[in-house]
Computed example of a mutant assay.
Amino acid sequence: MPYEVRAAVAVEKGAPAEVRTILVPDPGPEDVLVAVQACGVCHTDLHYREGAVGDDFPYLLGHEAAGVVEAVGPQVTGLAPGDYVVLAWRAPCGRCRSCRRGRPWYCFDSRNAARPMTLLDGTPLTAALGIGAFAEKTLVAAGQAVKVDPAARPEAAGLIGCGVMAGYGAAVHTGAVGSGDTVAVIGCGGVGNAAIAGASRAGARRVIAIDLDDGKLDAAERFGATDTVNSRGTDPVEAVRGLTGGHGADVVIDAVGRPETYRQGFYMRDLAGTLVQVGVPEPETTIELPLLDLFSRGGALKSSWYGDCLPSRDFPVLIDLYLSGKLHLDRFVTETVGLGDLEAAFTRMQRGEVLRSVVTL
């Protein structure tokens, strides 16, 4: 029997999200039903609402969530009602060419729930990133629900599901930051600060935070930045070179995803350095660089998909770091809001007033 629950739905492109009653079906054979406790407000949700991800409206928004398993499909193993989980938008299939090559963090056929959630009139909803967690209950594939220590408060734990994992993994996995490295992070929102925390945790000798906002730079220092650069009135490339003996950083992480920040990151590297792009670009943007510079500067230009994470491996580790006081997830939570406050939270996010608003249910 379907469950009637309240949820935030983007009905049409550009229109404000609406709180609607939706229908959530019983789990399919390999699905789990999750009672959502908290879900972070991420830029990706706004991209869905604006039609920048696709046009498969209506969208059920929300994807950065923690909650409790209520029911499981008959073929599900390893999860049971009552388990506390963080939801992941990658659930490796184990069968695609990337999984078979031993790289499940790049899975090209990630699992989602087999049965759609719908509006009351039966209209299927497209779940944001295959999750749809701005809802009192949601249905996901079993591989998307990662069991973690229930001692972690859901407002903080849910952030592991997207922004924190993306930034932390961009430093630790994609960028392979090592002991003694110098690291520059462009953009000090939730993802950028998670990258700073990851670089610091990985043993970077110097972590340089770059942003236009002094408030965000202050926050970056609390996550482990050793130096800050306000690029509103300072050339960040020259500033980073000045802080690194004229060489540039070993690893640069672009957590913004704009052509100008990517170009800055490219020239901010030391020779043979690594540039990691984790900020999601707008669909129409392009970048042009001299081919000779691409050749002569060497190194690596990488895109970080979800921090190149394996949720079943990485989520429990990050939660353990949080509970031991080594990863300060609570510092990402600027405010908690209700489901009906989502549009106001989007506005504050666009103004750069928050690291993360979190919807509690």
Rank of each mutant, 00 (worst) to 15 (best):
G14H: 09
T228M: 09
Y168K: 10
G265M: 02
M1F: 04
A151L: 14
Q37Y: 13
F266E: 00
Y262E: 09
L323H: 10
G192P: 11
L61W: 08
E4N: 11
E64H: 06
T347V: 14
P154F: 02
V354P: 01
W89N: 13
R115E: 02
R201W: 08
S231L: 09
E221I: 13
G352P: 10
L329H: 03
R90G: 00
V207R: 02
L129Y: 00
L301M: 10
T126A: 09
V24S: 04
A80Q: 15
R331I: 06
L275R: 07
A345I: 04
P150Q: 12
K302V: 03
R348Q: 11
A141D: 13
G132D: 08
D213A: 11
Y306V: 02
H63C: 08
K137Q: 14
T44S: 15
A171G: 08
L46Y: 07
L119T: 13
G54S: 14
V229A: 09
G224M: 11
C188L: 11
A195W: 01
D26H: 06
G198D: 03
E238K: 13
I319Y: 00
L355D: 01
L292H: 00
F332W: 01
T274G: 11
L120C: 10
G78T: 08
A80V: 12
V256R: 02
T138D: 06
G187A: 07
L125I: 15
R258K: 12
A52I: 13
L79G: 10
C42H: 07
V86N: 08
G248R: 01
P2L: 03
A8V: 14
G298Y: 03
V140G: 11
V72I: 15
T77A: 13
P236R: 04
A157I: 07
E284R: 11
D218V: 12
A199M: 07
D330P: 06
D109Q: 14
G198L: 10
L323P: 01
A171T: 04
K147W: 00
G169H: 08
D308T: 12
V86S: 04
P283R: 13
Q350V: 14
V24A: 09
C188K: 05
V68Y: 05
V53I: 15
V11F: 02
P92S: 05
Q75R: 15
G242L: 09
T126R: 14
A344Y: 02
E155W: 03
G175R: 05
V172D: 02
K216V: 07
A344S: 12
E155N: 11
G248Y: 03
E353L: 13
Q37T: 12
T182M: 06
G94T: 06
A88G: 11
G299I: 09
G307L: 08
D45A: 07
G73D: 05
L129S: 11
T44K: 05
C309L: 14
P316F: 09
L120A: 15
D149A: 13
P104L: 10
V207Y: 05
A38T: 11
N193Y: 02
A249S: 14
T244Y: 02
V185W: 01
T336V: 15
